[in-house]
Design a protein around this nucleic acid. Sequence first.
DNA 1: TCAATGGCATATGCCAACTT
DNA 2: AAGTTGGCATATGCCATTGA
Length: 315
Amino acid sequence: MDLEWNQCPSGKEDEVEKLPFEIFEIGAVKLDEDMNRLDSYSCYIKPQVYKELHYIAKGLTHVSMESLNDGKTFADAVGEFIGWCEKDGEYRVCTWGTSDLVELQRNMRYFDISNPFSYPLFYYDVQKLFSIDREDGKSRRALETAVDMLGIEKDIDFHRAISDAEYTAKVMALLDMKKVSAYYSIDTYRTPKTVKEEIKVNYGTYEKYITKGYDTKEELVNNARLLATRCYLCGGTARKKIRWFTMNSKMHYCLAECRQHGYIKGRFRVREDEDGRFYASRVLKITDEAGAEEIRQRQSEVRKRRRDKRQKKKS
DNA sequence: TCAATGGCATATGCCAACTT
DNA sequence: AAGTTGGCATATGCCATTGA
């Protein structure tokens, strides 16, 4: 799936706060389990909030307001699109990058449409899968770059919803899905409300954990479930070698050790959801002596920096 | 132009424990 | 008693990347 959206043409001062980006086009291609192309979907949406195109969006997509005004209401478009998704049975959304599902749900919330997606919402970020399969797993390539690297023919213009969906599908079809299929992403537009809704996924090489939301950061970062380090391979307690520490209040790190599986490095990031509640997304990962040493280094650097600050202040 | 992520960096202030 | 140190927390900004 790919979306095109517009933003306030006259700048942030005049924008509608709850809707920084207004979706005006939906495009999608449906693949089966074997990556065979089954069907496609495409539609325009008539703008309700920003009635002029921002010059960036206009230059990128080359659409005209005239054609958008012939489009459907957002509610009709979403209803139709979700119907198209569901008509052949179970489906999984795949996008290039992480932003489309966020903006889609933000638009749904703004236009008061109940969220049709299952919870928790797992999806494939094809940009990430491409990186895991063909690069270092961390790079974030532009769709056109990936298309070039894979030698896919560029027979249609980029930056239209349906064409980018077609290209994303073609990229995905060329990936080694046996290798990358385990690496699905977790959408956090809707965050866990209760402990029961919390999300913990074991990816084999690492474990991801999304906590519920708390009113204050203090409550969050002092929470026992967040701070506890259990080995995700055997379930045993992993004793802390270095307790949780932070460099900037957002990223926290620790080092633990499982009796059976050795060093486990932990990191969590404090995040804020749309309702202003604080939650954490934590990753535990088995590491080796070198990885452990990196954590020790990082901690001593933080200490040294603070020590230096003190002395500098005195002199 | 605007949103988001991750990494790195700077500055500041309070408190408790330890050292001198 | 005065000074030092680390822990903890807040705020901010830069860089590089992607998305529209």
